[in-house]
């Protein structure tokens, strides 16, 4: 239980020790377990699949079954230092509202998502004439849970529109390694991005 996925590690590194965090869509609880065990974080999870929840709780993690779109509303303002949403924003019904709720419930929000302007996506769309299928977007158009895909620049625009401050933005290549490029290029080369946001 020492190694976690590279993109999860990047999120974990953004979280300060001894804080409170809510991981929305926590899956099998890998990030939660890391935060609890290595950063003494009071970490809670919310997961859509009951099987995922049961596995997490059986591992000693505090997790409930819940939906990012509907259940964030239960929590009081500023209940957490961080609300984390990993690779899930694009699957929510109302991403803007989910972001708003995350920043209400948490002092900071950490969001990661696949970049829909990645060059492979663009190529497949423009020259292939087909809906893109890549490593980070493996679904067919008819079975994808991703109903609100966006590019890194789209996301920046939404943040600006919502008046949300971007504290950190890390763009990852296809090997989940951080890349350092001007935004225009990052939006082409980056396969996914991790943003840390704060209410302004």
């Amino acid at each position: 239980m020492t190694a976690i996925r590279v993109d999860l590690q990047i999120i974990a590194d953004m979280v300060a020790p001894d804080t409170r965090a809510l991981d929305v869509g926590c899956g099998d609880g890998a990030l939660l377990a890391y935060l609890v065990n290595f950063k003494r974080v009071d970490a809670r999870g919310m997961e859509l699949s009951q099987a995922g929840v049961n596995a997490c709780v059986a591992n000693g993690l505090s997790v409930i079954q819940g939906d990012a779109d509907t259940d964030l509303g239960d929590y009081p303002d500023s209940a957490f230092d961080y609300v984390i949403l990993g690779q899930t924003l694009q699957a929510t019904r109302e991403p803007r509202e989910v972001l708003r709720q995350m920043l209400r419930v948490g002092k900071r929000a950490i969001v990661s998502f696949p970049n829909f302007a990645h060059w492979q996506v663009r190529l497949r769309m423009v020259f292939g004439g087909r809906m893109p299928q890549t490593a980070s977007l493996p679904y067919k158009w008819y079975d994808t849970p991703n109903i609100h895909l966006c590019s890194i620049d789209d996301f920046r625009a939404l943040c600006a529109d919502m008046g949300v401050r971007i504290e950190r933005a890390i763009v990852l290549n296809s090997k989940s390694r951080p890349i350092h490029m001007p935004p225009l290029l990052a939006n082409l080369v980056g396969e996914q991005a991790v943003f840390m946001l704060r209410r302004d």
């Binding site: 049961n54 709780v57 993690l61 505090s62 997790v63 079954q65 259940d71 009081p76």
Partner: peptide, 18 residues
């Protein structure tokens, strides 16, 4: 009960057993 505990920001796990 879970909703109420969330509203109180309590530490809660919930499992529905099949």
């Amino acid at each position: 009960i879970v909703h109420a505990l969330n509203a109180a920001a309590a530490n809660v796990s919930f499992v529905e057993v099949e």
